[in-house]
């Protein structure tokens, strides 16, 4: 299964991204985008799966500097 993920950054400190990945994003995970770390605060289905593709929406919140350490 290919997970096509729409990443939207809360606060728009990053324009967001659309990425294909082999593993689904998980709530609470930390990921890096454009050299900055973000925490996944929401994962929802964006569209029903079709063929080998699942379509997800993820909301990201920038990690506070204290959290990054």
């Amino acid at each position: 299964m290919v997970y096509k993920v729409s990443y939207v950054v809360i606060g728009r400190s990053h324009p967001g991204a659309i990425l294909n990945q082999e593993a689904p994003p998980r709530l609470g995970e930390v990921m890096e985008l454009g050299g900055r770390k973000y925490r996944i605060v929401e994962v929802t289905d964006l569209m029903p799966p079709r063929g080998d593709f699942a379509y997800l929406h993820v909301a990201l919140r920038p990690l506070a500097e204290a959290e990054e350490i």
């Binding site: 290919v2 096509k4 324009p15 967001g16 991204a17 659309i18 990425l19 294909n20 985008l33 454009g34």
Partner: peptide, 8 residues
């Protein structure tokens, strides 16, 4: 407005 990764 958005970044597109591999496969897009």
């Amino acid at each position: 407005v958005v970044q597109l990764g591999q496969g897009q």
